[in-house]
């Protein structure tokens, strides 16, 4: 106490509690840092609302003009007269996304469990960066591979019922699966590796095998991260444009046969967006309509994902 009052050159009563020059400097930098963070948050929020509001007016305008049935089976918004039956885009999107998930989820989760609970330190040190490289392959490269290798080499040979025109939904689905697999593996592995060692030890001490510990304890304890990984991959596949455009083509065929060419919502936007659509033309507004739908579906999945995650979230210290 006496030391303190001597250290602060106090004139007034209680002045030894006043901030020192050093603390005032720290406070100054503290306030700068907080304001930078505030601005960052504000910019993010502004961009998001900006995007939403730019999507809305053309979408509403077009919905007012559309006379044909929206859930029709023909999607030809750029033709005359335009047709807005969106079913082919919906089936196209879901066929490709589902095929992709059939690849990404089982293989991605298996890889995550392997990395978190089986791989030795050295194997992990090699495999984890490879996964990250795989996640960084430009989608256009995957698209090329699908178009020139998978479609002619695999699909046309082994999936005979399709309409052989060089494009296929299954090729696009497979490549989208390859694209999203490392996302599932990497995010899920992070979640599983974060499960405390004590959980695993408890399992082993009860006479559980490595597999039982991995699948019945670690997987359960890390379930919220696993769900997050799946949702992230799903959203990524859903919005994937390049691969769908290059490998599945741009023909909006209403079909459930994965050997057929198909168009997804995202690849329609990519396709129509590079063509010249004069502002206020039907084509222009259609892009925004589909964009709104894409946005909405993604939003719903994210909300759903958050709900699932918070339901599963278990707090362990």
């Amino acid at each position: 106490m006496s030391d303190l009052s001597k250290a602060g050159t106090s004139t007034a009563e209680g002045a030894w509690l006043a901030p020192s020059a050093h603390l005032r400097r720290r406070n100054f930098f503290q306030s700068i840092a907080v304001n930078v963070m505030r601005i960052g948050t504000l910019v993010t929020a502004l961009i998001t609302t900006g995007i939403i509001f730019s999507l809305i007016p053309p979408t509403i305008e077009l919905l007012g003009e559309i006379t044909t049935q929206v859930f029709g089976t023909t999607w030809a918004p750029l033709f005359l007269p335009p047709e807005f039956g969106i079913l082919p885009l919906i089936t196209g999107t879901f066929v490709i996304v589902i095929i992709a998930m059939f690849i990404a989820i089982p293989f991605g989760l298996a890889a995550a469990l392997f990395l978190s609970d089986y791989a030795s330190f050295n194997v992990r040190r090699v495999v984890k960066p490879i996964l990250e490289i795989l996640a960084g392959i430009p989608t256009v490269v995957l698209g090329l591979f699908g178009l020139y290798v998978i479609n002619p080499g695999l699909v046309e040979k082994y999936w005979p019922i399709g309409e052989s025109v060089g494009y296929s939904a299954i090729g696009a689905g497979l490549m989208t699966g390859v694209l999203t697999l490392p996302i599932v593996a990497s995010v899920a592995d992070d979640a599983l590796s974060a499960v405390p060692r004590a959980m695993r030890e408890a399992g082993f001490a009860l006479g559980a095998t490595r597999r039982e510990v991995a699948t019945k304890i670690v997987f359960n304890a890390g379930i919220s991260g696993v769900v997050a990984a799946v949702i992230l991959a799903f959203a990524r596949a859903f919005g994937e444009t390049t691969v769908a455009l290059m490998v599945a083509g741009s023909y909006p065929k209403l079909s459930l046969n994965p050997g057929d060419p198909m168009q997804t919502m995202a690849s329609f936007i990519g396709f129509a967006g590079i063509g010249d659509q004069p502002t206020d033309s039907t084509g222009y507004k259609t892009i925004f309509l589909v964009g709104s739908i894409l946005f909405l579906v993604t939003l719903v999945f994210n909300l759903l994902g958050n709900r699932i995650i918070s339901r599963f979230r278990e707090v362990y210290e």
Binding site: A202, F204, A205, L206
Partner: peptide
């Protein structure tokens, strides 16, 4: 060996499951 020789750790480490499932885990795997 570990089934016959159990272990209790320094920090309580229950599984993030129900009380019942915590107890039932060992008998179920064995």
């Amino acid at each position: 060996v570990r089934r016959r020789i159990g272990m209790v750790f320094q920090k309580p480490n229950p599984f993030p499951k129900s009380i019942y499932e915590n107890i039932a885990f060992g008998p179920k795997v064995n």
